[in-house]
Design a protein around this nucleic acid. Structure first.
Lengths: 305, 305
DNA sequence: CGGCCGGCCAAGCGCTGCTTATGGTGAGGA
DNA sequence: TCCTCACCATAAGCAGCGCTTGGCCGGCCG
């Protein structure tokens, strides 16, 4: 089997016409070149160079090998270049899977920051809830999953939001946030500093997605009542809109509300406290991939900001 | 720098999705694969494989490298194939330089024998006299030079026909042959067993090429006379034709006369004896090139036949 | 004819890459 | 739930390889 090193030496010898000159060019000693060429000729099974005393020329087989070596070494250089581009963050791909409110808040800022610094990076995003997004990382469909896990009065263990720890995923915590209550402006508790959920036991409730609805039920259970859920809306803006229309009350993560306060809605702290942790999941090997590490950093920064 | 071995292992891992399977496929142990991949990832400066427990997949950089590896390994295989074809004599080129009478006698038989056994071999021939043909070997313009050297009453040392021994050429003796006298059929010595050249001192002489002419003069000098050269012809058939026409006498190498005796010509042994040695010259390295060795063998066989 | 250059050879040595043996971990089945 | 198997990582030991140094020889040139 030919070695890359052999081909390099052969090319140098063929170009310079001398073992010594090739050795100087390659930064090694002349016997090293002699040995390399002997090994290569043994591998080839035929002489590749003729030493005529005055000069050293390739044989026909040597010429053929030099010809091929040019292409092989060029392909190798191209491969190194491409890998270096990915390793050096001049290129690279990172695929995110995230849940809706993160897609709206964290991800745009992080992606913008990454692309500003590394224009070559290619970022893609797909929306998927915590169980599925973690699976996608495990299945190689994406590099980073943004997930959340409910904390507080809910049942975190049963929630298992961060995916099975047994998946071998690494967890990068991004932020923890409280759930706040959303009340219509004209609600009698809308100006309160803090509201106990029990005070809202008789209200009409507005729930979000299936997962959030389960969490809402558990929160209310821990406060001693079962919520009467009259509306279910996908997406926080819709929930807030329903609250603003005076159709009921809701609890949402702080960040899900976004920078602009929805019209006609007041937010209040709630007790018992409830919240969620947002984290990024990825595979251990992938945290050493530059573009993945950079994206994780940008996500952390976006979560802090 | 990537090594061929690394690429092979990477490809096997990517294809099988497992270190162990790759090790089995490559005929080595699993830790060997682990080490190879670690070394390759270190060389690449970025992870190339993600181990998810269930399976092992390439990262983006790994995919890029696998993609390049396919081309590189294919080019390498093509190079090995071509070199093996040359080494294995399924292909190969041998260029001959020979003097005219060998071109007419030895070479056709040898080339025919070689091409019959190895149809892929490409043989070319150029005519050149001994000094020049040896130079051509030294200069890489051909692989084999057919040369001759006069022996006997001539001055072999001054002749130097086999080229400078200092050229580093190897000599493969092919045949030695006597010079014979050519007399017209009606010459009074045409039926003699042997003719002393002195008896032909007063004849009209027909000489061949410049070099042969010099040799003729020396032979005659050693017999005690200077030949009167009235005709000079390039090529033995022409010389024999002139003799057959009764225009003079000549001496020629036996083989130069060829299988068919020219019309009207008788050949007689001459004294003092004169002759020449025919040999093939090549470079030491080239005798290990299969097609060159084969050609030398065929030339020897043709010389014996 | 002597210096010089280029190449081969031998010896020594450090490094690399393989092997065997062992431990940890996730997955599948009783 | 526990057991077992498959897979991978790690460590230690060892053989082989490739490089270097030093010495020698042969051809070329001043």
């Amino acid at each position: 089997m030919f070695e890359v090193r052999h081909l390099r030496v052969l090319r140098a010898v063929a170009r310079t016409g001398s073992f010594s000159a090739a050795a100087r060019e390659l930064g090694c000693t002349q016997p090293a070149v002699s040995q390399q060429m002997r090994a290569l000729e043994q591998a080839a099974g035929t002489p590749l160079l003729v030493r005529t005393g005055r000069e050293t020329r390739p044989t026909e087989a040597g010429e053929a090998l030099v010809r091929h070596a040019a292409g092989i070494l060029a392909a190798l250089a191209a491969a190194e270049e491409e890998v270096a581009a990915i390793a050096g963050l001049r290129a690279g791909r990172v695929r995110l899977a995230s849940f809706p409110s993160a897609s709206a808040a964290l991800v745009p800022a992080a992606v913008a920051a990454l692309r500003e610094e590394y224009p070559g990076a290619r970022v893609s995003l797909v929306e998927a809830g915590p169980p599925r997004s973690a699976e996608m990382v495990g299945e190689g469909e994406c590099e980073i999953a943004l997930v959340y896990r409910h904390t507080g009065s809910g049942a975190p263990a049963a929630d298992g939001a961060f995916g099975d720890p047994g998946d071998g995923l690494v967890v990068r915590p991004l932020l923890t946030e409280r759930f706040v209550g959303l009340l219509p402006e004209d609600h009698h508790l809308a100006r309160a500093e803090s509201v106990d959920l029990g005070e809202l036991a008789e209200e009409s409730w507005i729930a979000g997605c299936r997962r959030c609805r389960g969490h809402l039920v558990r929160i209310c259970e821990s406060a001693g009542f079962a919520p009467r859920i009259d509306f279910t809306a996908d997406g926080s803006p819709a929930v807030a809109g329903l609250v603003g229309a005076g159709l009921g009350v809701a609890v949402l993560p702080e960040s899900a509300i976004g920078p602009v306060r929805p019209e006609g809605v007041r937010t209040v702290r709630i007790t018992p406290e409830a919240g969620r942790e947002v984290a990024a999941l990825t595979l251990p090997d992938l945290v050493r991939v530059p573009v993945v590490a950079a994206m994780l950093d940008r996500l952390s920064a976006a979560a802090r900001g």
